[in-house]
Amino acid sequence: MVLLKHIISEIEQFAPPAFQEDYDNTGLQTGDPNMEIRGILITLDVTEEVLEDAISKGENLIVSHHPVTLSGIKKLTGSTAAERILAKAIQQNIAIYSAHTSIDSVDNGVSGILSQRLGLSNLRVLAPRTGLLLKLVTFVPTQYAEKVRSALFDAGAGMIGNYDCCSYNLEGVGTFRAGEGTNPYVGEKGSIHFEKEVRIETIIPKHLKNRILKVLLETHPYEEVAYDLYPLANVWPKVGFGAIGDLQTPLSEEEALQQIKKVTGAQCIRHTELIGNPVKKIAVCGGSGSFLLKTAIQNGADIFVSSDFKYHQFQEADNKIVIADIGHYESEQLTKEVFFELLTKKFPNFAVRLTNVTTNPVKYY
């Protein structure tokens, strides 16, 4: 039996809800976390046609990139498509889970898969995020240091870039005096005790704080565990928006645009004036990425692939970069395959299907 909460857990380990933007509505839209799931339908958008697709095949979970609505719902009268979708999903006992800017923010998410399909190497996040990391410092009796350190690493502490198990360790002496009502691990009540300890410093993701502290308290031998948490201004190189990488063989701008069109299936590409430079480095951002234009230029990209550029934003390219606006749907459609690969790997004997409904609201004449 596969419960909805088990599937949500796997998705959120990959794309934590803590990574979503403030305006977003990532997470469970409808459904009971304890409901049994019979089948999963994956889509970019939840439309009425997609909902009917799930109903016709007996699938009771829809996993989407875009939420049914970004704004709150105050009534369910059926006056809008979003209201009709939510009402019918509830009536049919169909769960809807969306991972939007949370999966935009992971390095192997929306922009990552587009970069890979374009054949880019040396990939890195275009705009790494800050404010998502903490420094954990704790003090452990010497003989327990390895046990506590390993437990913290297993819980998700100590990740720096492509390195794990990262920590700094300093030996010293700790002092304490146990008062009435205590049960000290070492020392005697009423007497100051000196204990050889190791100061362990490590970085932890903010969204894993509670889990890591729980592990610390469970593995540390002291009745009262001393620890400090410091907010960090460090960037997290694996979390952020967009991606940038290198082509193994430089292309002309025309060849690069043809390659982008082929990979994404875009019917047309809105672009700025071609500069005439060879294309060696490409920046991408699935969805509305115009806010990253300056970052793409600063990082030396020759072409920036994204969508939803406004008229005057095209002028901001200023012959420093070629903007390739391929369309919102076209830039994010591969997200379905990210979900599919994740869920089929985690639940190999379970029915997971990509919808055959095209949800792109933009048509070309």
Rank of each mutant, 00 (worst) to 15 (best):
V2L: 15
K5L: 14
Q13L: 11
Q20A: 11
Q20D: 11
Q20W: 06
D24S: 08
D24W: 07
N25E: 06
L28D: 12
A54H: 04
G58S: 12
S64R: 06
H66A: 00
D107C: 10
S111K: 02
R117H: 15
L123R: 05
L126K: 05
T138D: 08
T138S: 11
E146F: 13
S167I: 02
L170C: 06
A178Y: 07
N183R: 13
P184Q: 04
E188G: 00
E195T: 10
E195W: 09
K196V: 00
E197T: 03
R199I: 09
V215K: 06
H220I: 08
E223Q: 15
A226K: 15
P231L: 00
L232E: 04
L232Y: 05
V235P: 07
K238I: 04
T249F: 13
P250D: 05
E255S: 13
I269S: 10
L274W: 00
L274N: 00
K280N: 15
K281F: 00
V284Q: 06
C285Y: 09
G286S: 10
S290I: 06
S290M: 07
L292F: 01
T295A: 09
Q298Y: 13
D302K: 01
V305R: 04
K310G: 04
F314Y: 09
F314H: 01
D318G: 07
K320D: 12
I323F: 02
I323G: 02
D325K: 07
Q333Y: 11
E337A: 09
V357M: 05
